[in-house]
Design a protein around this nucleic acid. Structure first.
Lengths: 180, 180
DNA sequence: GCTGTCATGTAACAGGTTACATGATTCG
DNA sequence: CGAATCATGTAACCTGTTACATGACAGC
């Protein structure tokens, strides 16, 4: 139970419609959380029912109306309470890791190729994050408050990609093409 | 859909009962996958029904009987097919990361303390993984096949903990106690 | 007219979590 | 005798995914 809270965070940063939230989840917030629009619509409806959000219908020129959600006073309280609550260390779930471990029960060369594909993808993501950092935070030293928090989470995204690149590189260097 | 496959991997390494698998998932395999015993029992039953596993009841002295599962020929084929299939890069889901980003909407000092607690936990895990590596793989250079694969996944566990330690340390150094 | 995008949703299903139940045995 | 461990499971619930549906407008 935390999509609610991730949505409260996103909406405190800026009120938005369901689709806008889904798009935002594929970028900034999405380093460490993800959700599809279907899931977001469902949860938004529940949150509105619980009084955590307010809605207003916004007419747009040349586009369908949208429902813009904002966090209510009750929602702010829920968010503050959640922030103060204990949080356990979640296990990372990686299908690729299971495959790396299992390589000897199938086509080892194929598993290597999967690792290479993932490595390329992580390189691309790292480059994208570096670009975001350069664009949005040209002077990190001077950041404060919510801006600094967002920058530091982007730093986490960078470091996570570096983790993958480091590990997969080690894997690929240690195992070699046509091996036992 | 991959708990099935993680279980096939675990059972190919060594036949086991449901509870033994649950315990194993909290260690070795569990760096990158996790499941509770309830979930494991449910999935084992389905896999047996699908003919991926064989079972035999093993009597034990001073303990209840256990059902020991092993992978059937059909199960081996399923595993090999899955290994060759494409795997997408999964997003990491971290409640703590969302809280770090949201610190300015609640008690910032409290969020810092959560980060400190997680940092301590990751230090402890890293130490445990280093101990495992030293105990189980005293001579990594000479490893081959499945042993080398298992070692390399343990290396991933080590690197993942280093990621957390690096990031949370950066976070704690950049934000300071009684700050805006 | 067709395709693509914006925008919101429903329905069915698969996967995962939490709580509880049972029964035997060992250990203090 | 009570608590802890071993072992297997059921039931209810919550979360997340996939597929599909609708309608309006923009651009080719």
């Amino acid at each position: 139970m935390a999509l609610e809270h991730a949505l409260l965070v996103a909406l405190r940063e800026r009120p938005a419609s369901g689709l806008e939230l889904a798009r935002r989840f594929d970028r900034s917030i999405g380093f460490f959380w993800h959700a599809t629009h279907q899931q977001i619509y469902r949860v938004l409806a529940r949150m509105e029912g619980d009084g955590w959000l307010t809605v207003r219908t916004v007419a747009q020129s040349g586009r369908p109306d949208k429902k813009e959600y904002d966090v209510s006073a009750a929602g702010r309280e829920v968010l503050a309470d959640w922030l103060a609550a204990d949080t356990t260390v979640e296990p990372l779930r990686s299908e690729l890791a299971v495959k790396l471990r299992a390589a000897s029960y199938g086509d080892r060369a194929r598993v290597r190729r999967l690792a290479e594909e993932h490595l390329a993808e992580h390189h691309a993501r790292l480059a994208a994050y570096h670009r975001m950092a350069a664009d949005q935070y040209p002077d990190p030293e001077s950041l404060t408050g919510a801006d600094r928090d967002r920058f530091l989470v982007l730093r986490g995204g960078v470091r996570l990609e570096e983790f993958w690149i480091g590990w997969l590189s080690e894997y690929l260097e240690t195992t070699t093409e046509g091996q036992r």
